[in-house]
Nucleic acid binder design. Structure first.
Lengths: 139, 139
DNA sequence: TTTAATCCTATAAATCTTATAGGAGTTAAA
DNA sequence: TTTAACTCCTATAAGATTTATAGGATTAAA
């Protein structure tokens, strides 16, 4: 399940992609429009900045805006930054690979093989779902 | 990510499907073979029994065994029983449907549309991954 | 009657999620 | 040059979930 953090982040990014052409938008405005706690959203947008998806401008008239084109931001990128791994198992994660501590034989694990298929299918869909697409599909 | 509970449950079921023809196996034996805490596994197998996947025999010489054929137990069934919803959002869950509390307009949510695609793709794979298949693919 | 099981309830440690609070630093505008 | 409106950083904490552990009631075979 997506965490609230990820959902809030996604909604905020969709709002940003829709509303902002050039000027940055303050957290307070985004939070109000999406009914999100300002302080919580502040932390989320900061994570997205650290992750390279947003850029910020400090001080009065400052705020956040996209750091790259909406067509280049994948839903999988956003989810990874805010929720961590997408895969069902660490041993099939592309970006957060780790062994399963309780695994007795990784090369020969049938659960792993299924998790690999799920990962590939999921990433294909989440990769096609760019922020641009998400905005388009929001009527 | 799969929880340890789900991983343990899956491993235990694979072991049960492989080892047991007719007689039930005690939790202690399964736990030892898979290096799982006996008490924890006890709770897990009980959940699987309540969910209809396992049946149990009490008392001496008792234990757990499959309640239905391995070919009829899907990985998605097991995951639902032990970890709950498979979908990314409650609003696209088949078995645990609920509205997203923070959602302002469900019918018009582009995140939801993607989550729906992911759900369908995931369930297709997890549905094809029956316990029988999992056992086969364990070399 | 003993032994080996499941099954049930309670408790708890650890970790993760979802925040809240306060203030330091930065910048535009008055 | 002061004020107002921002981001950014750290700390704290409540609540939920995960991952167990403990003890004993109940059941059934030997």
């Amino acid at each position: 399940m997506l965490s609230k953090k990820a959902k809030y982040g996604l909604k905020a990014l969709i709002y940003l992609a829709k509303e902002s052409e050039e000027r940055p938008l303050p957290v307070s405005q985004i939070a109000e429009s999406q009914k999100i706690s300002v302080k919580f959203l502040e932390a989320i947008l900061n994570d997205l900045r650290t992750g390279g998806i947003l850029k910020s401008k400090k001080g009065k008239m400052g705020g956040y805006q996209l750091n790259v084109k909406a067509s280049e931001i994948k839903m999988s990128d956003i989810m990874r930054l805010l929720d961590g791994p997408i895969a069902l198992l660490p041993c099939v994660s592309l970006n957060f690979y780790d062994t399963c501590e309780e695994c007795l034989d990784e090369n020969n694990c049938s659960i792993r093989k299924v998790a690999l298929q799920v990962r590939d299918a999921t990433l294909e869909i989440l990769g096609a779902a760019t922020l641009e697409e998400l905005v388009k599909n929001e009527k």
